[in-house]
């Protein structure tokens, strides 16, 4: 009777373990963190503690070709793979979905934003769209742009010395220095560039390739694919022995702040900020509202 009970117990166990339901993460595994093999040295730097092989294994053989044949019929390899491979959502698909969500959740927010921000104008249907090639580019290990996540534009207040492009001042600060490039002369003071006009000075966008000695302390260091940029007031710089040189906004760079003077535009139902002809996509990173430089191309 005792033997009978043992056999019965074994049968129950076999039945329980044959109830397999493997889809994706569905296999039974040796308990994570404990390992199945004897004497397994855990590799702490490894993503999974290092490979672990059982001390004893079932016997392996060298079977003849086709000794085990699949029963699965109609395995539409090319079809299923094609669908999967093409799953990477196109920007246009994404936009439709996000646009709907934006409408549900952000309309009131936009109105508040538009009403309260004197510098914001919302233009719709610009003849541009996000360049699709970003989906095949890695930005700091992240493929494609970050997911679009709308948040209202709040111009960052850099301080009293900061002025938006087009701003007019009658007198130049004594701390300003003159910088030049290509026979054009500018006054530079704490991250802001001026040109002399009748009766005073106008703030202008930072001229690309111009070099200045220093940036205000609110500068951000932005790392993008092993390149370090310095960002201040909507302008990107690279640093060398001569100082900080203005460069075009690098595609995919993520920044924390946009200064006063940006314009909100709606493209395919999504809202982007435009500053000095650079488009910034709102996003959420680590719970913080941020912006990513996105490359646009003409829809025509």
């Amino acid at each position: 009777m005792k033997n009978f009970k043992s056999i019965y117990l074994i049968l129950i166990l076999i039945g329980a373990f044959s109830a397999s339901d493997l889809i994706a993460q569905r296999m039974r595994h040796a308990p994570a963190g404990r390992g199945g093999g004897g004497g397994h040295a855990v590799n702490r730097s490894s993503i999974n503690g290092g490979a672990n092989r059982a001390a004893t294994r079932p016997k392996t053989t060298t079977p003849s070709r086709n000794s085990v044949t699949p029963k699965t019929q109609n395995r539409d390899l090319s079809g299923s793979k094609a669908k999967v491979a093409n799953k990477k959502p196109s920007v246009s698909n994404k936009k439709t979905e996000i646009s709907n969500n934006s409408k549900k959740t952000n309309i009131s927010g936009n109105k508040v934003n538009i009403d309260n921000s004197k510098n914001v104008n919302v233009n719709v249907n610009r003849n541009v769209h996000v360049n699709n090639r970003h989906s095949n580019i890695y930005y700091n290990g992240h493929r494609g742009y970050h997911p679009y996540y709308y948040h209202p534009y709040r111009p960052y207040a850099y301080g009293p010395y900061w002025h938006p492009f087009g701003f007019f001042v009658a007198t130049m600060a004594t701390t300003a220095v003159m910088v030049s490039i290509a026979n054009s002369h500018y006054y530079y003071d704490q991250g802001v560039y001026y040109t002399q006009v009748s009766g005073g000075y106008n703030v202008v966008p930072p001229p690309v390739n111009i070099t200045v000695n220093e940036l205000p302390k609110e500068q951000e260091s932005v790392t993008l694919n092993d390149e370090t940029y310095y960002y201040y007031g909507g302008a990107f710089y690279v640093k060398d022995d001569k100082g900080f040189t203005v460069v075009e906004a690098p595609d995919g760079a993520v920044v924390t702040h946009l200064p006063e003077g940006a314009e909100e535009v709606e493209i395919d139902g999504e809202k982007y900020m435009v500053l000095n002809d650079t488009y910034y996509q709102p996003l959420l990173q680590d719970g913080q509202d941020m912006y990513q430089v996105v490359a646009m191309e003409s829809s025509n």
Binding site: Q25, R26, A30, A32, G37, N48
Partner: peptide, 16 residues
């Protein structure tokens, strides 16, 4: 379920 998690168990071969 986490995507393709099975592959990342250190005992993948034995599990199979």
């Amino acid at each position: 379920d986490f995507p393709a998690a099975d592959f990342f168990y250190p005992t993948f071969t034995d599990d199979l």
